[in-house]
Design a protein around this nucleic acid. Structure first.
Lengths: 360, 360
DNA sequence: ATCAGTATTTGGAACGTTCCAATTCTGTCA
DNA sequence: TGACAGAATTGGAACGTTCCAAATACTGAT
């Protein structure tokens, strides 16, 4: 049944040329006569030849496999799905193929997946590392000359390129917006303090409140799991405070949704009795009630830019570690109490193109 | 800089054994002495050996590459992201690795991607085909003995396995539910008539209205693009009808959202003035206003089952084409006018585990 | 010490491709 | 006709692994 694989030698025999010539045709070399090329191509089609990239890679001494590995920590989260799509766009148009895996925040799984990708000879890796990833984990990769680009979360110690969104500036604008609405006590809710992203966002919050002349009060910073449940928990603590805040910026949208839940269970209406701002602008932010005011980060753009950076390094041969911050934009909807008039569901809404500038 | 690749021979030399022995260790053979195995493993770690799967596959004559290809038509749609996660779960625990690509409904891209996967020697393929995929497109794959499982959409002509959700039964239950609420004129809105999925869902609609004694009226079937915009368009036509319907089942959730948009722009409140039911139960369905009553299809479950089916075929060696239909479940929320009392945002909501039974 | 029998180890010979150096073909020009 | 330059083609020899058959090392019994 399963006929023996058709190889370049079979083609050569059938076309009456040598395997070397067939190889030349395969690589689109200009050395081969037009007539021969045509004949070989015909025979290949007739015999149903399929190129064996494994064999090719073997000979080419691990040079170019044209595979880009992409590792994300939670594919269920549409943020990362979009990121992957962004990567795929540029990767595919450069003639590479994408090898996407999901770690589900498991650091062991991440190790496996990366190892497997290495075995398959990827020519570059784009990764959104699982929480608590050791910076040293990617050392062997870069030592072997495989460019690595870390996205979304950064890995402080590692000598790899990275693209993160401008967490600090995003928080600053969120806080300023709330302050502009007249809020005097603004809380920072949610997130685990052990991540670099948390540090950045908190720093932005601090800058914001200080710039607005509100002063930084430690009791207004309440960390929790960066999830919906975490948000519920955090707002509970916030409300129990002696001097209760009237607004909050949240670590991310999931927390913000939880905060809304928590408010409602206490008979407070988010956007009316308490202003809430999220971070990420996940798909659901737009359709939720009230529509979430949040900081939009354009995951697809990050994916595209990450891929471009990676391809550049692959082509350059030399992997110069490079860091890039992408701009973010505050999207004002309803949950902050400002955009009440906005219809909030008029089709595409405010989520539009992002300006592609980077900040230092 | 880039040191020459460490090969099995280097290991052999350093460990004072032959390359054959190292190979045996690599494959976990029981033939090798425990002491030698330990020594070899140590040396491998020390030298930073990485297995070259390409070379291995080459020798093993295209047998087992341990790669499963997954091709979806729209990764941005969280439905497919979840599907991929489901596949990944079982694929990974079987020691395979997933090679995921997105076609974005481009049939050309799909061809490229599948070709590329073949070149890389996948041992099986799971695909949600792009619209208008030719059934013959996967012929070469199965001819080469590579099992293919088609999911979500089926390919009538092709001799491949497939898993689709029970579109017909889902629609029947949606229609029955609406009829039970007293609706007499129920429309079927959205979707392109050229797909098998459309046919199934429409057949279910027809069965449903007939079973409810309402009769099948052709003018109540209004097709459109299966998108939000398509939904707006379809509801517009529906409302313009002489005998206006009071409820609609929609081709999918995107259409249903569009229908809600269209209703509101005509000062009709979905769930109050007009009942709307969707299909798919995408993530947003739960958080929308009003929360969407829809037919839940558990994409992750489809992914898991598809992967199991594929692995079974890979192990069996022989690819017996097999067809499976997965059960669906009507999730009643607010948009049908029935579940008004439900809080709709009480955390996880109704979206729970699916019974894993299959129907003939 | 020898022998059978088992437990380990080991040199090639593939696998399908690319690369290199070398060869054979075309004309062209003297 | 012979020489010569290009163009086009071609045989190996890799690449890093696994497989096979065969070799060697041990074990206990004679």
């Amino acid at each position: 049944m399963t006929k023996a694989r058709v190889t370049v030698i079979d083609i050569a025999k059938a076309a009456g040329v040598s395997k070397s010539t067939v190889s030349l045709v395969l690589q689109g070399s200009s050395l081969v006569n037009e007539a021969t090329r045509a004949k070989v191509n015909t025979v290949m089609r007739d015999l149903g030849y399929v190129y064996n990239r494994g064999a090719a890679n073997l000979r080419q001494a691990g040079a170019k496999s044209r595979i880009i590995g992409v590792v994300v920590n939670d594919l269920t989260n549409s943020f990362f799905a979009e990121l992957a799509v962004g990567v795929d766009m540029v990767v595919q148009s450069a003639g590479f193929v994408q090898f996407l895996s999901n770690t589900g925040e498991s650091i062991d799984r991440q190790r496996e997946v990366v190892a497997s990708m290495r075995e398959h000879g990827i020519s570059g890796l784009i990764v959104s590392p699982a929480r608590a990833t050791d910076a040293a984990d990617f050392k062997p990769l870069v030592a072997a000359g495989i460019p690595v680009v870390v996205v979304v979360r950064n890995l402080p110690g590692a000598k790899v390129s990275s693209i993160v969104s401008d967490n600090r500036a995003g928080m600053v604008s969120a806080v300023k917006h709330l302050a502009g609405l007249g809020h005097k006590r603004i809380a920072f809710l949610g997130g685990f303090p052990d991540t670099a992203v948390f540090d950045d966002r908190l720093a932005g919050y601090r800058n914001g409140v200080e710039a607005a002349g509100l002063g930084y009060h430690e009791e207004l910073v309440i960390s929790s799991a960066p999830s919906r449940a975490g948000g519920v928990e955090a707002i509970g603590k916030a409300i129990a405070l002696g001097l209760r805040p009237t607004a909050a910026v949240c670590f991310n949208d999931a927390v913000a949704f939880g905060v809304c839940d928590g408010l409602r269970s206490r008979r407070l209406e988010p956007g009316v009795d308490f202003a809430v701002v999220g971070f990420d602008d996940v798909i659901e932010a737009q359709a939720a009630v009230p529509a979430l005011t949040t900081v939009s980060v354009d995951p697809q753009g990050i994916g595209r830019r990450g891929a471009q950076m990676l391809l550049k390094q692959i082509n350059a041969g030399k992997a110069e570690a490079e860091t890039m911050t992408t701009a973010v934009r505050l999207v004002v909807r309803e949950s902050c109490g400002a955009g009440k008039t906005a219809p909030a569901r008029a089709g595409k809404s405010v989520k539009s193109k992002q300006d592609a500038e980077e900040c230092p």
